[in-house]
Simulated scan of single mutants.
Amino acid sequence: MPQSANRTVPVSAAGAKVAIGDIHLDAAQETAAELGVSAHRLDVSDPECLNAFLTEVTHELGPIDIFVSNAGIMWVGPFAEESNAVARAQIEVNLLGVINGIKAAAPAMVARGGGHLITVASAGSILPTPGEATYAATKHGVLGYLKAIRAELRGKGVRITSIMPGVVDTALAAGTSSGAAKLLTPAEVARSVVKSALRPRFEITVPGFIGPAVKVANLLPLAIRDRLFGAMVPNQLLARKNQRQDYEASFTATRR
């Protein structure tokens, strides 16, 4: 799917009432039928659509305790070859989508004095990723935004979590490499969302070693850091394969 589903709570198996939203309603309804949850159309780049989604879900299930932002799209290639339309689409979905969602969901949580905003960002939020320049910029932006929101909401009962997985086996990552880390499954990322809901932390990397490794690397001289990151982080310019063409064509078409 060009945009992955946004979920108001992680999974129904954890005892939560769940609603999911996606820009492709048919795909959301198919997933919802498998999970036994409800589905709604949701374009995260449209604030009015987000507000309507939250209104529908609140009417259906009650106040939203946990809001998970998970929509994302990615173009891979040399930065100079990326079209302005593709760059804009990634910013609208990956960064503004998170901003729109938090602006829509947070006020009611603040008013109630409790809630949890979980965003599935990317290890690209803290790593240099050749071939994914704009995507990485949006994910760095997401982490920076969440840091500021966390500071603003401190003491108001609303928790913030940024989950930063490596490469996940989805259409978004088709034709790319996972580098030194293993290729993750969607289920592994989902489990990290559930764990963060049960035991909140602000920054969570998947796999867990990425966070400490980056912190250590950032203490090193630049030349050594570059060599370390060069060994850890996949160069997607070298790794990318032709199977990305259909995926990237689909999300640019969706944004028109």
Rank of each mutant, 00 (worst) to 15 (best):
residue 184 L to V: 08
residue 210 I to K: 11
residue 132 E to P: 07
residue 149 I to R: 04
residue 216 V to F: 05
residue 160 I to N: 05
residue 152 E to M: 02
residue 133 A to V: 10
residue 215 K to W: 05
residue 195 K to L: 15
residue 165 P to W: 01
residue 178 S to Y: 08
residue 206 V to I: 12
residue 201 R to I: 13
residue 143 L to N: 05
residue 213 A to W: 05
residue 147 K to F: 11
residue 183 L to Q: 01
residue 202 F to R: 14
residue 157 G to F: 02
residue 161 T to M: 04
residue 168 V to P: 03
residue 177 S to W: 03
residue 149 I to T: 14
residue 137 A to N: 05
residue 191 R to Q: 13
residue 199 R to W: 07
residue 173 A to D: 09
residue 140 H to R: 09
residue 174 A to I: 11
residue 158 V to E: 08
residue 195 K to M: 15
residue 168 V to C: 01
residue 206 V to Q: 10
residue 132 E to T: 13
residue 134 T to L: 06
residue 203 E to S: 09
residue 180 A to W: 07
residue 183 L to D: 02
residue 176 T to M: 15
residue 209 F to K: 13
residue 138 T to G: 07
residue 154 R to M: 15
residue 146 L to N: 02
residue 145 Y to H: 04
residue 188 E to Q: 15
residue 189 V to K: 03
residue 152 E to S: 12
residue 153 L to P: 07
residue 140 H to W: 06
residue 203 E to V: 01
residue 162 S to T: 00
residue 172 L to M: 12
residue 193 V to H: 01
residue 158 V to T: 15
residue 190 A to L: 14
residue 208 G to M: 14
residue 213 A to F: 12
residue 216 V to A: 05
residue 140 H to D: 05
residue 183 L to E: 04
residue 194 V to I: 12
residue 176 T to Y: 04
residue 142 V to W: 00
residue 209 F to Q: 14
residue 171 A to T: 07
residue 174 A to P: 12
residue 200 P to H: 05
residue 143 L to S: 06
residue 144 G to T: 01
residue 189 V to S: 08
residue 198 L to E: 08
residue 151 A to P: 13
residue 177 S to E: 04
residue 154 R to K: 15
residue 209 F to S: 13
residue 145 Y to F: 05
residue 168 V to Q: 04
residue 169 D to K: 08
residue 150 R to V: 12
residue 160 I to L: 14
residue 180 A to K: 11
residue 156 K to E: 08
residue 191 R to S: 12
residue 156 K to I: 01
residue 178 S to F: 07
residue 180 A to D: 03
residue 203 E to R: 01
residue 210 I to E: 10
